[in-house]
Simulated scan of single mutants.
Amino acid sequence: MSNTPAQPMNVPSGAQTATVAAGCFWGVEHMYRKAFANKGLLDARVGYIGGDTNDPGYRAVCSGRTGHAEALQIAYDPNAVSYRALLEFFYKMHDPTTANSQGPDVGSQYRSAIFYHNAEQEKIAKEITEKVNKQWWKGKVVTEVLPAGQWWDAETYHQEYLDKNPSGYECPSHFLRKFPDLVD
């Protein structure tokens, strides 16, 4: 199946986009949809970003040879949820201390990364990463903070996969950890 570069999500004026990679994108999408339903999440879709291959497909990305990460792109209402809150959730829902892996999923496609869309997001992503590295993960965070490049939607059957397949694979490292509030 051929993918095409994604068209912008159909969201209201004033909405913003956040893009994160935290391992297998099925679980990441599922957790964000559950946590932020009716709390600012307007849309979410899984796809590929950060590589050097045009028109990536799932099998090619899973080979680890495309440079792409499995990722989640979120459209959100910044009046209902902040970018900071989305990133704090990101750091609680996966293990950002393992380079190129989450649980049994190994390869650069499963890396931990934040792909920022503007200078303000870059600033916030770096601030939050520094704080969680010091306060929660004790100097072990390997998450990349990178500019968002070309986004490619994953194949249709991957979208909302765990809603359609409730007994489908979910990475065991995807669960919400309990951390104290970050201190400024």
Rank of each mutant, 00 (worst) to 15 (best):
C62R: 00
V28I: 13
P78N: 13
A113S: 13
V61N: 01
S108E: 15
A35V: 13
D52I: 06
T17D: 13
S112H: 11
S101K: 15
G27R: 05
M31N: 06
E120F: 10
N38A: 14
L72R: 06
F89N: 04
Q73G: 01
W26T: 13
H68P: 02
D105K: 08
E120M: 10
E122F: 00
A44F: 05
S101M: 15
E29V: 01
V20I: 09
K138T: 05
R111I: 05
Y58S: 02
V61L: 02
E130D: 14
T66R: 03
A69K: 01
L41K: 11
A69V: 01
A80L: 13
K123W: 06
Y58G: 01
G40H: 04
I49W: 05
P96I: 15
P56Y: 07
R33A: 14
K131E: 12
L41F: 10
V46M: 04
A113I: 01
A69Y: 03
T143R: 06
C62M: 02
Y48S: 05
S112Q: 10
E122W: 00
K140V: 01
A119G: 06
G40Y: 09
D55S: 14
T19F: 08
G47L: 09
A22S: 11
H117L: 05
H68A: 04
A71C: 03
E130A: 14
W26D: 02
M93H: 09
I114Y: 11
T129P: 00
D77F: 00
Y32C: 01
D55H: 14
G67W: 00
K138S: 14
A113C: 07
A85E: 15
A71G: 01
T97A: 15
G40A: 08
T97F: 14
S101I: 10
H94D: 14
V141F: 09
C24K: 03
T129D: 13
I74P: 02
V141G: 07
R65M: 04
K34G: 10
G57N: 12
T17C: 11
G50L: 11
W136T: 05
L87N: 08
V81R: 10
G139E: 07
P104L: 15
